[in-house]
Structure formats: structure tokens, C-alpha cells
Design a protein around this nucleic acid. Structure first.
Lengths: 335, 335
DNA sequence: AAGCTTTTTGCGTGTTTTGTGCAAAATACG
DNA sequence: CGTATTTTGCACAAAACACGCAAAAAGCTT
């Protein structure tokens, strides 16, 4: 009681002008206490350093999530992609009563130390990495510390983390099949290394090629051949293909600009398909054929998986959001 | 009012001994009406054939799901697989307050007509197909009628339906990689056609083979070569492989029995890996190395996706549950 | 458009439920 | 085994709820 002693329920009760029994019930999370009073009591208890024997969070703890979005993605051609995801996360967080902190970060700032600091600063109990594949340190920490971690627009081949991504495999498969259905027999896929999500697109492409005997597929990797080089090669007729499937709309549109249009330098029927359905796809002329990704649905899924995990679901969940072909004007039927 | 006329709110009110305003509010799903009275009013309204202008179910309708589980799967070697899924669905339904009807059916009884009848009989607003790939009719109907449909342990390459499956691709990839890490350079994958989920296992196998230059993969399809034939060929040394990855534990165990053990007829270090971690895998001697699938998590995921969809989420979601290698005694390091 | 019938809405009131304190019982701590 | 602390049973005021009444609004008919 005296200032020297450990704080007791009586002290809390006095400070707040309520009875001891109220304090007791509030701390025990019993029913029959108004939320206002309960919050006051628990806050005061923390302030006075009262140590309760009750488990700190019996049942429904409040959920706070920290979302890290790489600045370069959020600014570049993928801006609207990540914007959609963030919108979806916001909406679902609202509905689920989760406090969401979105932080734009420089991708190479995302180190274990950084995350740890941010987490403790915001008091988050879940972390979302948007378009960032965690390195070993981070992976290890998340598993040890038991912090909920969800990859937004990511994929973990090792199945250690929950993730949400577009249905990259089947989407790429469909896009490729669509070119094949249009009569194309030799198709080039322009992709890039390192991200598992993009690798799944490539696999979808290859699976579609393999499923259609007589159709040939060529894979070109952006890390090895810049898009400028590729364009030059295509113009020179080096690859002898009639269609290109690009790993995303950005490169696809730049190809459309260079290869198609009024006085196309390419042979009749040359086709291009992108992926993501970014706004730029609609602005291209002719309109790019691409694969629509429901970005907001990805965001909503991320929050749901996070909430699941905080609720105790400990199986790893990898969620893929269905995509659909958008028929533009860059797929032409040939022979 | 008179028996000849259309029923009015006044009639309902009189029958139940409440006021007209109460009836009005009950039918409009307004607040300030007890659940008991609301239910009475709505039931009486239905009985008297009263036609309200309000949308039949404004907001939170109660959720009833119908799960169809194929009898042959539920009885055969996969019994425990589907049992786990059903358990998971039950548990999650309970928690989410969903009424779940599980029906064991003969797989080829699952026609559109049958489903329709069952749905109207049980009043379900969501359907779960366990291990059944819907035919065109059913697919079409579900999309038209707007009935929620989730595939449990299924996969829809066309991305029309929500589905939950084990992480077949990455699981098969890891299993194969594990054999490669053990030194195997020529590996056979025994698979079977027709189910997209199993096809993803094959793709995972092929991706792992492709990612390891110098390793050769052979795919044998059960529809073309019975497991008896395959065994004979392996014993005869026809394939010249040092390891086999089977599409499920059933066939894997029969191979273990025939090929491994005390006086194994195969060369030193011959390895076998299965998939699913069925109880039979643990009963085999030596213990089968396989890939563990959390069946209950699949079931829980199914119910969550269904609930999402009933709550208005209309993006297609394909959920994969992470799997993990179970180290048994049938993978041997060689050379 | 006036005169019905039917439905919705504003408000008042009886009935539950909720939130809290008091005091006694139970528990922890020397 | 007493004393400080916490929990529990019960009582009661305050708030929320559930409903009816009557007026207003909205639909139908001619």
C-alpha cells in the first residue's frame, strides 16, 4: 500500500475510484465489467507495475500488424500493384479489428535488426513483408520468436511461412495456352531470376508448352539479357518466335511500344502477353493482353492469414488468388 | 385479410399475438426485436406465404455447408486422409458456427442433379467436394447459381473455384531434392493421371530434377504401368534408377515391402519416398520416408474459405497447406 | 388524385441485462 | 495461525432491449 510496497489491487481501485472487486474482475477478464473500466484498470495496473497471476492475454489479445512495403516497388512501375495490396490489407484490417501499420522501407534496410526494432517500437505481434523474400536471419528469427509472419505477393518454397500471391503458375499456364490456341508454335518467355513467385510463372509457361506437343518454348532471363538486347534480337529475327509472354506488364508494354502498332516491324500476327494488369496495360496502344490480378484480394488474404495465425492456426498456409485473362489487342490468331 | 386474400403483416401479427409494428421490424431485420420473436415471425411469414419486399437474407445469413466425401476414398487406403480432413472441417465449423453436413457418396453418384437435390434438401448454401474434381455441368451450375463451392484436397487449374490442398508442388520438390541430396542421380517418379493435385506433385518432381544438372528423372504413369509391372521392371533392373518417389504412401509401402527389408533384392542404398504420411507409412518396415500432410489443417482451411465466400469475398482462393518431410528409414545415402 | 389498405417509423413503457459495490469467503503469505 | 490480498455471492441502480401504440408514409384502386 505504502509507496514502498508492491502495488495491490486496492491501490489500483483507489486511483481509479472503483472497488477492489471491480479491479479483480477486470484483471481476471471476467464478464460483467464494461470495456471502459476494464481498459482503465488494465492500463493503471501496467502503470503501477502490478503483476497479475493471470496469463497476460487470456484469449483475445488485440492484434497489431506491421507491414513493410519496399519503397522501390511502391514507387516504380509496380506502384499500383502494391497500392492495391495495401488497400486490401487496410480494408480487411478494419473489418477484423486489427491495427495495421504500413511502413515504406528501402528494401535493403529490411534486416533482422531493423524488423526487430520496428516490431518492438510498434508493439506489433505480426509482420507482413510485401514483395520481400526474407533472408535466413529473418526466417530463423520469426520461427524462433514465434512472431507471425506473412509474405504478401511472395512465396516460400521451403514452406516455413504463410504467404499470399496471385495464382502465378496457373495464370502463366493460361496465358501461354491462350497464345497456343491462337496458333503460335514458338513462344518466348521473358522472365527474371531470384523471386520464387516469378519462377512459378516460368513453370506455368513451361508446363503449358510441355502439354502441347509440337509447341516450342524459349526462356530468356532478364538478368542475362536486358530488355534492350532482347528487343534488338527480336527485331533481328534471331529467335524466330511469333509470340512473347513477359513476366510483367512493365516490360510487356515497352515491347508493345517497340514492336507493335501501326507500322510494326514484326511479321503479321506477332503477339505479346503480360502479367498483372497494371494501369499501364490499359494505356498501351494497342491495349495489352494480360493477366488480371486482384490486388486487393491479395491484401485481404494476407490479413486473414495473419489473423488465423494469431488465433493459433499453426499449419503453414500458402494462399493463391485466382487470376483471369484480360483480352487486349496484342494477341493475334495466326495460321 | 379474408382467407381468399394475400396474407399481410396484420395476419402474421394476429396469428402470433404480436403487434404489426413488431412484424414489420422483424421482417426488415431491424434491431430491437428479440431473436425468438424474429424467428417466429419469419417462420409464420413463410407458412402463410407472405411475400416481403426485403431481400430474403439481409446480411448475416446462417451458414450451412454440405460436404460430399467419396465413399471409395473414405474406405480405401486413403481413409485416414479423408478422415483427417473431415475432422478438421468439423472442428472449424463448430468454432465458426457453421452447420456442417457430411455425406459419404459414391463418387460417380456426384452428378449435378444429385448435388442439387442434396443442397435443396439440406438447405445448404455452400458445397464442399472432397477429392472430387467437378465436371463441366457442376462447374457451370455453381457459377450460375452462385452457390459457394470449395474443393477439399482438390485443385482447379482454371481458377473457377476455391480449393484447399497440400503443398503438392513444393512437397514433391523437397522430397525429390532430399533424394538428390542423398546422392541419387537417376530417380523414378511413379504417378498417375487425371487429378490436378497429383499432377502438381509430378511437376514438383520435374522442377527439382531440372534444378539439379546431372540428375535424371523418369516418370512412370500408373494408368499405363500397373504397380505390379513396375515392380517387375525394377527388379529386372530395367530402369537403372537408384530411387523411387511415389505419388502416395499406398504404392510406396507396397514397393517397400517388395523391394526393401532384410534380404532386399535391390542394390545397396535403393531408396523410396512416399507422400501423405498415412498411418501405413509408419507401419511399414523399414519405416517409410514420406511427406507429412496436415489433414486437419486442410479441413480447417476449407471451412474458412467457405465462410469467406459466404461473407462476400468473391476472389477465387486456392489455399495450400505446408507439408514437411518425415525422415523414415527408406532414404539411403549413396556414393 | 382521393380514399382505401398496408407498411414503416417515432416514441413511451415494462422487462432484462449489465455493471458495479459491499461484504463474506477463499487464498496467499508470513 | 493471523493478516493482507484476491475472489466470489448477492443486491441494486442504470442502461439496453423488446415491444405496443398511434401517427406518418407508401402502395393500390378506382
Amino acid at each position: 500500500m505504502a509507496s514502498g510496497k508492491r502495488a495491490s489491487q486496492a491501490d489500483i481501485a483507489e486511483k481509479l475510484g472503483v472497488s477492489v472487486s471491480t479491479v479483480s474482475r477486470a484483471l481476471a477478464n471476467e464478464i460483467g465489467i464494461s470495456e471502459a473500466v476494464r481498459a482503465d484498470v488494465q492500463r493503471m495496473a501496467r502503470m503501477l507495475g502490478y503483476k497479475s497471476k493471470h496469463p497476460p492475454t487470456l484469449g483475445k489479445l488485440d492484434k497489431r500488424a506491421l507491414a513493410l512495403v519496399p519503397l522501390n516497388s511502391a514507387m516504380g512501375s509496380l506502384a499500383s500493384f502494391y497500392h492495391g495490396i495495401v488497400e486490401g490489407m487496410r480494408a480487411q484490417s478494419e473489418e477484423a479489428g486489427i491495427v495495421l501499420d504500413v511502413r515504406l522501407v528501402n528494401e535493403d534496410m529490411v534486416t533482422l535488426d531493423f524488423i526487430r526494432r520496428q516490431v518492438s517500437k510498434t508493439g506489433a505481434n505480426g509482420v507482413i513483408l510485401a514483395g520481400i523474400d526474407p533472408d535466413e536471419d529473418i526466417a530463423h528469427w520469426a520461427q524462433e520468436a514465434g512472431t507471425a509472419l506473412v509474405l504478401a505477393n511472395g512465396n516460400d518454397p521451403q514452406m516455413r511461412f504463410n504467404s499470399v500471391s496471385p495464382a502465378n503458375f496457373y495464370g502463366a499456364y493460361q496465358a501461354t495456352q491462350c497464345l497456343i490456341d491462337a496458333g503460335h508454335r514458338k513462344i518466348l518467355h521473358y522472365t527474371y531470376r531470384h523471386r520464387p513467385t516469378i519462377l512459378q510463372r516460368r513453370r506455368g509457361f513451361e508446363a503449358a508448352i510441355a502439354a502441347n506437343p509440337g509447341v516450342e518454348g524459349i526462356v530468356v532471363i532478364s538478368n542475362e539479357h536486358s530488355s534492350k538486347d532482347l528487343l534488338a534480337s527480336l527485331l533481328a529475327g534471331e529467335y524466330d518466335v511469333t509470340a512473347v509472354f513477359c513476366w510483367n506488364d512493365g516490360v510487356a508494354v515497352s515491347m508493345v511500344e517497340a514492336l507493335l502498332g501501326q507500322d510494326s516491324p514484326m511479321q503479321q500476327g506477332f503477339s505479346i502477353v503480360g502479367f498483372d494488369d497494371l494501369p499501364i496495360a490499359g494505356m498501351a496502344n494497342p491495349r495489352l493482353s494480360t493477366v488480371r490480378v486482384d490486388r486487393e484480394a491479395i491484401g485481404r488474404g494476407v490479413i486473414r492469414l495473419l489473423a488465423n495465425q494469431l488465433d493459433g492456426e499453426n499449419a503453414i498456409q500458402q494462399l493463391e488468388i485466382g487470376v483471369s485473362l484480360v483480352a487486349g489487342e496484342t494477341v493475334h490468331t495466326i495460321a
